[in-house]
Simulated scan of single mutants.
Amino acid sequence: MTHERRVLVHSDRAALAASVAARFITTAVDLLHEEGDIHVVLTGGSVATEVLDAVNASAARDTVDWEHVNFWWGDERWLPYSDPERNELQARTALLDHLDIPAENIHPFASSDGPLDLDAAAAAYADELEAASNDGTVLPRFDITFLGVGPDGHIASLFPHLPGIREDTASVLTVRNSPKPPAERLTLSRPALNSSRCIWLVLAGPDKASALGLALAGASRDEVPVAGIKGRRYTNFFVDQEAAAEVPENLTASSF
C-alpha cells in the first residue's frame, strides 16, 4: 500500500480553517459511504478549534451522517471537566454540541475532578479504545486524525526528549512533566496515532515554520516529535504561508 505525504499551503489562517473544514466534510461523507461508520481523532489548540467552528458554520455540515461518526481525542490536559483549557470542552463548544450525534459516539478522556486518578484514566481510555475495535486489535480503525504541531515540534502530548515519543507498546500514556502547562496530561502514543488511515496536521503562524521544516527534512523524532508521525495511507500538512516558510518548494502544493 502506497503512502502519500503532502504539504498544502493556504494564503492565510482563515483560508486554512475554511479549506480544512470543507475537506473534512467531503472526506467524512466519502468514508461513511465506504465504511458505514468512521472514527475521527480530534486535537486541541486555537487552529483546530477554528477548523471545528468552520465545520459547524458550513452549509454542508449536515450532509454528514453524524450518527455514524465516532470522536476520540489525541490528548487531553488533566484538568477539571469544565475547565476551558480542556480540549474536550473546546471541541464541544465549537462543534460537537451542535450536532445530532449520539452521546456514546463521543469518547473524551477522564477529567481530574472525576473518580479516576491519572494512571487509572489512561487505563480506562485504553480499555475503551480496545472495546471499540472490531478486528481484534487494541484500537478502533482511526480514519482521520487531526494533530497540531507546537513550535518545539511536539504533537498531541508527545514532547521532545521525553520518553513518551519513544513508547512503542502502550496505546495511551500518562504525562507528568509536560514542559507546557499543565504538567499532567493524557495522550495517545505515537504508534496509536500512526495507526490512522489519514493524519491531518494543521498549523499556522511563523513560530511553526522551523519545526515543520525540520520534520520534512528528516529530523529525529526525539528532537522533533512530528517527524515520527506517518499515517497508514496519507499524511497531509495543511499550513498557511507563514508556517510554510521553511518547507522545500518541491513538497508544497497550493490549496484547493
Rank of each mutant, 00 (worst) to 15 (best):
G36Q: 07
D65W: 10
R61P: 09
D97S: 13
F71C: 03
A132F: 07
L16G: 00
D240W: 05
C198D: 12
Q241G: 12
R233K: 11
R197K: 14
A110V: 03
D83F: 07
S255F: 12
G45H: 04
V55R: 00
E223Y: 07
S112I: 07
A217W: 09
L129H: 02
S82N: 14
H10N: 13
L52V: 11
G218F: 09
A219C: 07
A21W: 03
F109L: 08
A244D: 02
D83Q: 03
T187Q: 05
L52T: 09
G150P: 07
D168H: 14
V247M: 00
E50Q: 09
F109I: 04
L42Y: 00
N177I: 03
A22H: 09
E35R: 15
G164V: 05
G228K: 02
L162N: 04
G218S: 05
E184M: 10
V29R: 11
L95R: 03
N105I: 06
A59V: 14
A156D: 07
P151M: 11
S46W: 08
A209T: 08
A124L: 11
P163W: 03
D97M: 08
I25E: 01
D37L: 12
P151E: 06
I38K: 04
P179W: 09
L95A: 08
A215P: 00
V149K: 09
I101V: 11
A60N: 13
V40I: 14
P151C: 15
D152P: 06
V29Q: 11
I229M: 12
T187K: 02
G74N: 08
E242I: 09
W72H: 03
E249F: 12
W200V: 12
V64N: 10
V175W: 03
F237I: 01
Y234H: 10
P163F: 05
A18L: 10
R221T: 13
A243V: 04
V9S: 03
D12W: 07
T49L: 11
G164F: 01
N105T: 10
L139E: 06
D119I: 14
F71Y: 01
N236S: 00
A209Q: 08
N194K: 12
D119N: 15
T26C: 00
R77V: 04
I155G: 04
R77C: 05
G114T: 14
W200S: 01
E242Q: 15
L193T: 05
T43F: 08
E50F: 06
A227V: 07
S255Q: 13
L201V: 14
E128T: 11
A183C: 10
T169W: 00
D83E: 12
A156M: 06
A245D: 02
P84G: 01
K180G: 10
T145Q: 14
N250S: 14
A227C: 05
A126G: 07
L31F: 10
S255R: 13
D113K: 13
D12H: 08
A14W: 05
H33N: 10
F159G: 02
E167W: 04
G231K: 01
E50C: 08
K208I: 08
A48G: 15
Y234N: 03
G44H: 06
D37M: 12
P84A: 08
H10W: 11
A192P: 01
D127Q: 12
P115Y: 12
Q241V: 13
D168E: 15
P182H: 04
N56P: 11
E50H: 10
N177T: 14
A120G: 15
D65T: 13
A211K: 02
L216P: 06
H10E: 09
G44E: 03
G153V: 01
R141H: 15
